[in-house]
Design a protein around this nucleic acid. Structure first.
Length: 590
RNA sequence: GCACCAGUAGCUCAGUUGGAUAGAGCAUCGGCCUUCUAAGCCGAGGGUCAUAGGUUCGAGCCCUAUCUGGUGUGCCA
C-alpha cells in the first residue's frame, strides 16, 4: 500500500476531479447517503463517452435500490451543462459522460496561455531520494542503470510539482571490499614500489577489483588482512585513508562522466557515501543499547525482531556490529535515517534500490522506528525494482560470464541509433547524424527502463533494449520532430497567437489527452511508477499521430489552421515536458 | 523451512480505486506516400489472464490453497 499524502487541492482542478466532485455530490444527495464516491474513470470505448462514473452500483447495493433506477434519479439531480454535452445511463448503472468540445477548447486555451503545463502542489514536502548508489571500486555496469534512471526521473517529477528534493547518492565506499582493495594495493606497493605502474593499475578499476577479489577468495590470510584494514579504515588510520581516497577520486570521476552523458542530475554535491556516517556509527550502537534493543550473539551486536525468522525458525538478527568491531551496512543505513530525519527534515525518504534488498530495508525501517530515528510523519519507502534477466530467463550475464559495462551499453545504443539515422537520412551530414544518434540512443535506453513496471523482473536483450518501435523513446521523439517540422514551415509571427476550437473527433481525443498531464504526474509522485508517465506519453503521441493523419494543419484554412497549430504547439510542449521529467531530451529533427 | 516479487497472445510487455466485449509493440498477412517527416497510419489473424476454489451486482486485479520461475534468509553491500 502506498502511503497517503495530502497534497491539497490543485489550484485548477482537472476534469476527473471536477466530475468526481459534482457527481459524487449528486449521488449523495439523491441516495441520502454521505460521502458517496462517483468513481470516475476514463471510458474505455468511444461509445461509452469520454469519462464514466462507476459508483452507482455500489451505492445502490448499499441502499438496497435498483441501480438503474438510482442512476435515473441521479441524472435528474445532475447538472453538467457547459461541461458535458451528453450524459447517459448505460449497462447495469454506469453514467457515461461525453465532454463538450467547447469546454475542452476553453480549458486548452487557458493552458495555452499559462506559463506552465503542470500545476504545482499546494502542499510542499521534503523528499529525500536515495538512488544510483554505485560501488566506488567498480565501474558502473548495467545493474546500476535501472535505479539511477528511475530515481532521476522521480526527483525531476517531485521538483516539478514543487517539492523540495534532496538527492542522496549513497556510494558504497566503506565495506569489506575496500579493505580488500587496500590490501591488494599495499601488496603491490611492497612488491614493486613503482608509483607510475600503480597509477596505471588503478586506471582500470574493474581489473584491479577482480584481482583483489581473486586474492580475497583464494587466500585466507589476505582475507583476514582485508578485514583488519576495514576496521583500521573505520578507525581513521592515515595510510588506509589515503589509499581509500584515491579509489574514491577515480570512481567519482568515472561516475560523473557517465551521469553527464546520460543526463542524470546527480552531482558531486549529492554524494553522501557510507563513510559520511562513519563517526555516527558508534553513537547508533550506544543509542540502540540505551533502548535495550541490542543482544550479543556469537560476539556480534544484534537487534532481534520477532517478525523475521531464519532458516531454522529461530529469530533473525539484524547485525549492527560484527564480532571484530566492524560496522555493517545496516548500521550505516540507520545512521542515514537519523540524519535524514533530524538534519534534512525529510517527510518522505525513498530508496530506489534493487528488490533483492527488500528484507534488509524492512529490517532497517523497523529498527529505525524502535530506535526513534524516524519521525511519526516521515515515510520510509523502499521503491524496489526487479532483477535483470538474460534472454534465457536466468539472471543476466554476458556470453563470457561477466557484467556489461554501462559505458559499453551506451556506446552500443548510440551506434545502433546512428545506423538507423543514417538509413533514414542518407543525405544528412555526419556531425548532425551523430548528434541525433547520441540523443536517440540514450533516450531509447533510458525509456526502456522507465517504461516497464519497476516491480517486474525484466529481460535484457539488445534488440528489445534498442528497438525503435512501439512504446519507445524514438516513437515519441519522432512525434515531436514531426510537429516541430510543421512550425519550421511557418514564417508569419502572427501564428503565435492561437485560439483552439475543437471540432473533429481526432481533435477532441487529442484535447482530452492533453488535459491529463498533471493528474498523471501527480499519480506518479504518489506511487512512484514512472511507467505510468511513459504510457501516458505513448498514448498522447498515438492520439497525435492519428490527428496528424486525419487533420491537415497547414492546408486547413483560417481558424481551423490556427486552432490546429495551437493543438500541435501544446502537444509538442507536453511531449517535451513529459520527456524532460523522464530525463530525456527532444530533437527538432530526426 | 520461512518471507518477498512475479506468472496475461508465438516473443517482449501494459492493464489506474474491482467496472461493460482483455490492450500495445514485435513477428505473420493485407492496405495507405504527386498532399504538414512512412522511425508513421489503417485493417486481419492470434487469449482457459498458471491451476482450483471463494468473496462480489461485477474479478486479470481482492481472499485461500496448489503449481512454476526469480530473489532473499547471522558477521558482504
Amino acid at each position: 500500500m502506498p502511503p497517503f499524502f495530502d497534497y491539497g487541492l490543485p489550484r485548477v482542478m482537472n476534469i476527473k476531479q471536477e466530475l468526481d466532485t459534482i457527481i459524487s455530490n449528486a449521488i449523495s444527495v439523491t441516495a441520502g447517503v454521505k460521502d458517496c464516491q462517483a468513481l470516475i474513470n476514463y471510458a474505455r470505448e468511444e461509445k461509452f463517452g469520454d469519462y464514466q462514473a462507476n459508483g452507482i452500483m455500489a451505492v445502490a447495493k448499499k441502499t438496497g435500490k435498483n441501480p438503474r433506477q438510482l442512476g435515473e434519479e441521479v441524472l435528474g439531480n445532475l447538472d453538467l451543462s457547459g461541461l458535458a454535452d451528453k450524459v447517459e445511463l448505460a449497462g447495469p448503472g454506469f453514467i457515461n459522460i461525453h465532454i463538450a468540445p467547447q469546454f475542452l477548447s476553453v480549458k486548452l486555451n487557458t493552458l495555452l496561455h499559462s506559463d506552465q503545463l503542470i500545476q504545482t502542489t499546494s502542499k510542499h514536502l521534503t523528499v529525500v531520494v536515495d538512488y544510483s548508489s554505485p560501488n566506488l571500486a567498480k565501474e558502473m555496469h548495467v545493474g546500476h542503470m535501472r535505479g539511477t534512471i528511475i530515481g532521476d526521473a522521480l526527483v525531476r517529477i517531485f521538483e516539478q510539482l514543487g517539492h523540495t528534493v534532496i538527492r542522496q547518492n549513497h556510494f558504497g565506499d566503506w565495506g569489506t571490499q575496500f579493505g580488500m582493495l587496500i590490501t591488494h594495493m599495499q601488496e603491490l606497493q611492497q612488491a614493486r614500489n613503482d608509483e607510475a605502474a600503480l597509477a596505471n593499475e588503478l586506471s582500470d578499476l574493474e581489473v584491479f577489483y577482480r584481482q583483489a577479489k581473486e586474492r580475497f577468495d583464494a587466500d585466507p590470510e589476505f582475507a583476514k588482512a582485508s578485514r583488519d584494514n576495514v576496521v583500521k579504515l573505520q578507525a581513521g588510520d592515515t595510510e588506509c585513508k589515503a589509499l581509500w581516497q584515491e579509489f574514491i577520486n577515480i570512481s567519482v570521476t568515472h561516475c560523473d562522466q557517465l551521469y553527464r552523458r546520460l543526463g542524470i542530475t546527480l552531482t558531486r554535491d549529492d554524494v553522501r557515501p557510507e563513510s559520511f556516517y562513519n563517526d555516527r556509527l558508534a553513537t547508533v550502537i550506544s543509542e540502540l543499547e540505551t533502548r535495550d534493543l541490542i543482544t550479543k550473539s556469537d560476539g556480534a551486536s544484534c537487534v532481534f525482531l520477532d517478525e523475521f525468522t531464519s532458516k531454522d525458525g529461530s529469530p533473525l538478527p539484524v547485525i549492527v556490529q560484527k564480532s571484530d568491531g566492524g560496522y555493517l551496512y545496516a548500521t550505516t543505513d540507520l545512521a542515514a535515517i537519523e540524519y535524514r530525519n533530524n538534519a534534512l527534515h525529510a517527510d518522505r525518504i525513498l530508496y530506489v534500490v534493487d528488490a533483492r534488498q527488500s528484507l534488509h530495508f524492512q529490517q532497517v525501517f523497523r529498527v529505525a522506528e524502535l530506535a526513534g530515528y524516524k519521525k511519526e510523519s516521515c515515510s520510509l519507502e523502499h521503491l524496489s525494482y526487479g532483477t535483470m534477466m538474460g534472454s534465457d530467463g536466468k539472471p543476466f550475464k554476458t556470453r563470457s560470464g561477466g557484467t556489461v559495462k554501462l559505458l559499453d551499453l551506451v556506446n552500443e545504443g548510440v551506434a545502433r541509433a546512428l545506423d538507423l539515422v543514417s538509413e533514414k537520412n542518407p543525405d544528412m551530414d555526419e556531425s548532425e547524424r551523430q548528434a541525433i544518434a547520441e540523443v536517440v540512443g540514450i533516450a531509447a535506453i533510458k525509456y526502456f527502463e522507465l517504461s516497464k513496471n519497476r516491480n517486474s523482473d525484466y529481460v535484457f536483450d539488445w534488440d528489445n533494449m534498442l528497438s525503435f518501435e512501439g512504446n519507445t523513446a524514438p516513437y515519441l521523439l519522432y512525434a515531436y520532430a514531426r510537429i516541430r517540422s510543421i512550425f519550421r514551415k511557418l514564417d508569419a509571427p502572427e501564428e503565435n497567437k492561437f485560439i483552439i476550437n475543437i471540432t473533429e473527433k481526432e481533435e477532441k481525443a487529442l484535447a482530452l489527452k492533453l488535459l491529463q498531464l498533471t493528474e498523471v504526474v501527480e499519480q506518479v509522485s504518489l506511487d512512484c511508477f514512472p511507467n505510468q508517465l511513459c504510457l501516458y506519453l505513448y498514448e498522447l503521441a498515438g492520439v497525435y499521430m492519428r490527428f496528424y493523419e486525419a487533420c491537415p494543419v497547414l492546408k486547413a484554412d483560417g481558424n481551423a489552421r490556427n486552432s490546429r497549430l495551437g493543438l500541435c504547439h501544446l502537444t509538442a510542449a507536453t511531449i517535451q515536458q513529459g520527456l524532460s521529467l523522464l530525463g530525456i531530451s527532444t530533437l527538432e529533427k530526426m
